[in-house]
């Protein structure tokens, strides 16, 4: 049985995560005058169509691109020494402390409550087209899974094989991977909620909504 209170306390002890902002590719960096302690906003708008706060610009081959915040939070440190310099891909530019929102807390707790179906080996994972279409149309929770259902396409070294689901019957409650990204073996792909546990999940949601205080 899930001890929600204990987990909430645990999360309350460090109610944030640190997001490292790294350069997506090489280029010359210029920061836009942010300083440690500044608050930044994540994408906004009904369709998240407005990007978050501008953090830095990266210029490569005379093409200036902006790096924007993907989550709201607070700037912890900035590698100002990199200002105006050519940097490699994946260089850390700054760290942002992001306080967990209720949804994120729910996600974390559920990750422990749900049946996790994990990647058997390091590879790229995709949903099979039918399931992908269902998720796109009706959201993750519209998909029911059962033992033996062909769910994933595993792509390794440009060769593709099918992977079927094993575990209890239920609905997909959360998806933990990006299609087309490499997933290490043992990492969870999806979290499945058996239908008789739906009330438990609802309970977690209610508890978090009642007890978790969101901080900026």
């Amino acid at each position: 049985m899930l001890n929600v209170k204990e987990m909430l306390d645990e999360l309350n002890a460090s109610p944030y995560e640190e997001i490292e902002i790294r350069t997506p590719h090489t280029g010359v960096v210029d920061f836009v005058g942010l300083a440690p302690g500044d608050r930044v906003a994540g994408p906004s708008g009904k369709w998240l169509e407005r990007p978050g706060t501008l953090l830095a610009n990266l210029t490569r081959e005379k093409n200036k691109k902006s790096i924007c915040a993907t989550q709201k939070g607070q700037v912890m440190d900035i590698q100002t020494a990199l200002e105006g310099r050519f940097v490699e891909a994946g260089e850390r530019l700054m760290t942002i402390r992001h306080f967990l929102s209720k949804e994120e807390v729910i996600g974390r707790i559920l990750k422990k409550a749900l049946h996790l179906f994990c990647a058997p080996e390091r590879a790229k994972y995709y949903f099979v087209p039918e399931i992908d279409a269902k998720i796109k149309a009706g959201g993750e929770q519209s998909v029911k899974v059962r033992e033996g259902l062909d769910m994933f396409i595993v792509s390794r070294m440009k060769r593709e094989t099918a992977l079927s689901y094993t575990g209890p019957q239920g609905i997909i409650y959360a998806v933990y991977f990006q299609q087309g990204d490499n997933v290490d073996g043992g990492q969870p792909l999806i979290g499945v909620c058996p239908e008789n546990q739906l009330t438990l999940i609802q309970d977690v949601v209610n508890r978090v909504h009642g007890e978790w205080e969101e901080r900026d």
């Binding site: 997506p24 590719h25 090489t26 280029g27 490569r60 081959e61 093409n63 050519f86 490699e88 891909a89 994946g90």
Partner: peptide, 18 residues
């Protein structure tokens, strides 16, 4: 130099200049 992808010509040329 660490780059994002071997397939991206802009990465190669940016590194070439650097």
């Amino acid at each position: 130099f660490r780059i994002s992808s071997y397939q991206d010509p802009s990465e190669m040329l940016a590194v070439a200049d650097a």
